[in-house]
Structure formats: C-alpha cells, structure tokens
C-alpha cells in the first residue's frame, strides 16, 4: 500500500479569544468575562490518496473551512500533525518546505474577495511563478497565456482587472492562479457556492478535466450534497468540529448510518420530490463556543439515548469503506 498523498492525524484547531489588558483587569475585579475558545476542529484524522476526490460536507460551524485551511497550510493545527507524502509538514525547511507549500493550493469561495482588485489578471496569475522561479519575467506572458487557455479564459483579457469579469470568470482566474504553481493537491473551499447554477456546471466540469490533465487530487469542501455526490469518490460528514461519518460515496448516500447524515440527505431538496412535506429535524446548530456534551448531535437527534449526552462516540467501522461515530450504529446499519 503506497503512502497516501496527504494524511492528517488527530488534528484539532482551536481559536482562543484572549483577554486584553482591560479585560484581564475587569475579570480580576469580578466581571463575568473569560477567555473564549472555539473548538473549530476537534480531533480529525483522514487520509487522501493520490488521484482521489474527497468530499467534505457539513453546515455552518462544522469546521470544514478551517480544516481545509489547515490542510492548505494557511493555519497551523493546535494539536495533531499533517503529513504530505509521508512527511510532517511542520518539520520541513528550505527547499522541501517550499515545494510542499506550492504543491497544496486552495480555491476560495468568494470570487470577489479572493482576487486582489488592484492587480491585473496577468499579475495575479503570474506573480507566484515568477517569484518562485517557475518562469522568468520575460516569459511570464506566455506562461500566463497557456494557463488561461487551460481554464477556458481568453488570454487577450490578461491585462484587465478582476472587477471587469463575471463571477464565473473570476473563479477561473482563481483556479488559474493555483494551477500556475503546478500543484498536486487542490483544496476547493465552497469553490462553486457563489456561482450561478449554469456556471457551476461549467466549473465542475473544468475541475474534472483538470484532474485528468494534471493528475490532481482534490479535497472538495461543500455544503451542497448533490455536487459532492456527483464528483467525490469518498465523503466525510462533519458536525460541529468532528467527523461523524465517512466512507465511499455510494455507501454514504445510499446507506447512511449516522442520524445527522440521514437527516441531511432527507432534507436536501431534490428535483424529483414534488410538493413534498418537509419534516425537518428540530433545533438550531449549536454555537461552536458551547458545544453540547458527549455526542454533539444529541440535543437534536430523534434517537438519542442516555449515553449520547455523556460520552462522545468514536468513529468505528460499520461496513467496508464506511465508518460512523454513533452509539447506535449497529441499529442503523
């Protein structure tokens, strides 16, 4: 069994809002304020093999975006380690560190905020390759042309600014920028959520074409189940910082085990369901500042038993290529 391209082991990411001097004084004098900790990602492990498309699904507060940024190297994990091609990325230095930094790139959600409005497209795409020596200043123009063609943009537009393009085109510019440094692994953080439906289809097809042509591996983060079902080989479902279920796509979508996954699938609107009676799960998604005890989902779970509020269930195998974190998984599988 070859080394997975990317592996994360027991990664947690916490954001602590420390008190400043004024706050500390106030707390000492008895005011009701204290440090706030957000457990954005809580003890997540996963492996991604070369060539796979792994989908990461969840709603707000589940930590998928934070996890994506940890994988991409934008955030450092509070606990745990990230391995690229078997090496711990926090231990890397020099040339190898730079190699790995460039090998993992990210495509962002907001096509407007993810591009520098004051830079021409040519510079947005060409800055990093020139900076890292992948091309020279004199050859930058041709280099950029080639990449723009690959993502379906007309190279004659490269002197323009982002605001002169549509949302779908801007997203292509973002993809071009990532491709320009010859990555091996792309983290797509809700990369199509802000686009129109017809443009989403174009960009999804583009991702798939690029995967073939450049031999890429993807971590595809999305809240849109139907898109994930369409393109992912494996899927992880997250809730409030933890992975609750994971497995190959067919398994998760056809035979979900965790009550949250079932609810998510049941509630997602589908074209073939007309005049349906929505029977939603009750309750709000809890705040990551105050996660419920034990299994995070227990307050909203229609099947919760006593144990669920006391002890967080571990991820364990349900079937082949299918794991879930639920005390009642035997019953549901």
């Amino acid at each position: 069994m070859s080394t997975p391209l990317l592996e994360i082991r027991n990664v947690s990411k916490r954001f602590v809002k420390k008190l400043d001097v004024a706050g500390k004084i106030a707390a000492r004098l008895g005011a009701d304020i204290s440090e706030e900790t957000v457990h954005a990602v809580d003890n997540v492990s996963m492996t991604i093999n070369k060539g796979e498309v792994v989908g990461l699904v969840g709603e707000s507060g589940c930590g998928k975006s934070t996890l994506g940024r940890v994988v991409a190297g934008i955030h450092n994990p509070t606990d745990g380690q990230v391995f690229f091609e078997g090496q711990d990325i926090s231990a890397l230095e020099g040339v190898r560190k730079r190699e790995v930094t460039l090998a993992v790139q990210m495509i962002f959600q907001d096509p407007f905020a993810s591009l520098n409005q004051r830079m021409r497209v040519e510079d947005i795409i060409g800055e990093a390759p020139v900076y890292h020596g992948l091309t020279t200043r004199s050859e930058k123009s041709d280099y950029v042309d080639e990449i723009m063609e690959k993502v379906g943009l007309d190279p004659s537009l490269k002197k323009r600014y982002p605001h002169q393009f549509s949302g779908g085109q801007r997203q292509r510019i973002g993809i071009a920028r990532a491709l320009a440094v010859k990555p091996r692994f792309l983290v797509c953080d809700e990369a199509i959520a802000a686009l129109d439906v017809s443009i989403q289809a174009q960009v999804i097809n583009l991702f798939m074409d690029l995967r073939e042509e450049f031999d890429l591996t993807y971590l595809f983060i999305s809240h849109d189940l139907s898109v994930v079902e369409h393109i992912a080989d494996r899927v992880l479902i997250m809730y409030l910082g933890r992975v609750v279920e994971s497995g190959i796509t067919e398994e998760i979508f056809d035979r979900p085990v965790h009550p949250y996954t079932s609810a998510l699938l049941a509630e997602a609107p589908r074209l073939d369901q007309r005049k349906r009676e929505f029977a939603p799960i009750k309750g709000e998604i809890p705040s990551p500042l105050e996660p419920p005890s034990g299994c995070h989902f227990h307050p909203r779970c229609p099947h919760a038993i006593g144990d669920c509020s006391r002890q967080a269930p571990a991820l364990e195998a349900v079937r082949q290529n299918h794991i879930a974190a639920c005390h009642l998984r035997e019953r549901f599988s």
Partner: peptide, 20 residues
Amino acid sequence: VVQQNSESERQVQTIDSETP
C-alpha cells in the same frame, strides 16, 4: 477533451471594459 472544450467555450468577453 480539454482542448475541445477550451475552444468552444472560451470565455472571450468581459462585462466591463473600463479600467478602474
């Protein structure tokens, strides 16, 4: 496949031709 698509739906226009 990639090239064919690139040619047929190359994004050739921008929506706004004024510079900032």
